[in-house]
């Protein structure tokens, strides 16, 4: 465990909590893509099946349970408690365009052709693209609430910190995981355009709106 990894995990947790706090306090999930949140729940559910098979550490176990719980609470908020505020008309990304290639790729490129490993691989590939419905929704409406942009910033920062973690681990432990690394790079690239807007607009006190 290195400093990049722990900061990455905390940044991920902070992103999830920011989103929940936003919905809780405003009693609204406007501007949030329910589809992206369903994909993230699917990512956690397929990746953390190992909770039933292996014990890695108490830290690992607790964090996995927290991520899973938070992601299901988020879905309950969007499609249950706050469904009247859900902006369905602008959440129009076609999930099959992501799911079909991701399922195909996980069958083609994996470490082992066994169910748990295929599900892990699927979750890694899916996570790389799971934010696209949210980014698509922002480009549909042309704007995002500032709190939503903080959520996206910490979610992107998490993956960027994981890249630093992998470089660190390669140099110190000779550890590498090419599936995670390549997907992580792709995932981080999706945030670059957003990072630029976040730094040039949101941090200067302006609302994020697209030209």
């Amino acid at each position: 465990m290195n400093v990049f990894r722990i900061l990455g995990d905390l940044s991920h947790l902070l992103a999830i909590l920011i989103l929940l706090a936003k919905m809780w306090r405003s009693k609204s999930c406007a501007g949030i893509s329910g589809k992206s949140q369903v994909l993230f729940a699917l990512v956690f559910s397929t990746r953390y099946l190992d909770l039933f098979f292996v014990f890695i550490s108490l830290y690992n176990l607790v964090m996995k349970v927290i991520y899973l719980l938070c992601s299901y609470i988020t879905i309950y908020m969007i499609y249950g408690k706050l469904r009247k505020t859900y902006d369905r008309e602008n959440d129009t990304f076609r999930l099959e365009f992501l799911l079909i290639p991701v399922i195909g790729l996980s069958f083609l490129e994996n470490y082992d052709f066994i169910p748990t490993e295929l599900l892990w691989t699927f979750s890694i590939y899916l996570e790389a693209v799971a934010i696209l419905p949210q980014l698509f929704m922002i480009s549909n409406t042309g704007e995002a609430e500032t709190i939503t942009t903080h959520y996206l910033f910490f979610l992107g920062l998490y993956r960027a910190l994981y890249l630093a973690n992998w470089i660190w681990r390669y140099h110190t432990e000779k550890f590498y995981d090419q599936i995670a690394i390549i997907s992580g790079v792709v995932q981080t690239i999706f945030y670059c355009d957003f990072f630029y807007l976040y730094i040039t607009k949101v941090l200067k006190g302006k609302k994020l709106s697209l030209p």
Partner: peptide
Amino acid sequence: QEPSKTHDEL
């Protein structure tokens, strides 16, 4: 070294 199959990251 082969990539680890116990995935210890989150």
